[in-house]
């Protein structure tokens, strides 16, 4: 479904990604791991068109590298940013409404679905997004992107700063999403949920992919873990 080959990305003159190659197939949860600064967030932002990039990014058979972000989103690629980017003056309900690409054509997910999955969000439906707690904002931002009915959703560090109970909730949500047919590319620093829910994973280092395999392969490979993951 998503086929990235030899992706290079630049912030101005800084050459951040040096030929990243990865793929996500239909129905998969794939994790992108690595230390801070190796280029995981940059990779998904480059795929989304938010960062100047060169190389090939094919989504559902179409080349999307070079398109503006809104055009890429309309092709069915969803993005959940690391800092959540909740619209603070708009209510929870309004945030979710803006996730929808067409006001009249609902996709796989309705607002009621979201409130059923997260009664907390339902209770705060008419409160401004800015007053929600960190965990609630994380749920809201994932749900908001889901409202756009993406085929593949790229999520940047959803468990950062969350209490263990909320981390489990996020893991549960991601598994539910995948069961309903949405593929996931998950950027994570914590190995915890990445290892439990992913089918495959990539490890990045210095702007490149340095390891590819299944969670079991990584768990058995101390060398890779020490060199590229542990502090």
């Amino acid at each position: 479904m998503l086929d990235v080959r030899d992706l290079h990305a630049f912030y101005g003159k800084s050459h951040i990604l040096h030929g990243v190659t990865l793929r996500v197939d239909e129905g998969e949860i794939v994790s992108l791991l690595g230390r801070n600064g190796v280029g995981r967030s940059t990779t998904i932002r480059a795929i989304m068109g938010d960062v100047r990039a060169e190389g090939s990014v094919r989504f559902r058979g179409e080349e999307i590298c070079g398109l503006p972000p809104y055009a890429i989103a309309r092709k069915g690629l969803g993005y959940v940013p690391e800092n959540r980017d909740i619209f603070p003056t708009l209510t929870v309900r309004q945030n979710l409404l803006l996730g929808m690409k067409h006001a009249r054509r609902p996709g796989r997910w309705t607002i009621d679905d979201m409130f059923r999955l997260f009664p907390n969000l339902g209770q705060r439906a008419d409160k401004p997004g800015g007053v929600l707690s960190g965990g609630e904002q994380q749920m809201l931002t994932i749900c908001r992107t889901l409202m756009g009915d993406p085929h593949l959703i790229m999520i940047d560090e959803p468990t950062e700063g969350l209490a263990p109970l909320l981390v489990q909730q996020v893991a549960g949500l991601l598994t539910t999403i995948a069961e309903r047919g949405v593929s996931i590319l998950l950027v994570e620093q914590k190995l915890t949920i990445a290892l439990t829910i992913s089918r495959r994973l990539y490890v990045m280092g210095h702007g490149r992919v340095v390891f590819e395999g299944a969670p079991g392969d990584l768990q058995g490979n101390d060398g890779v873990r020490k060199e590229w993951l542990e502090v």
Partner: peptide
């Protein structure tokens, strides 16, 4: 809905674009 999109674009135009709205 158009008004909401404009309100959101006042604070987070990048995110509004990534949700699929034609911000330009």
């Amino acid at each position: 809905r158009a008004g909401l999109i404009i309100q959101a674009s006042l604070t987070h135009p990048g995110m509004v674009a990534m949700l699929g709205h034609n911000v330009p």
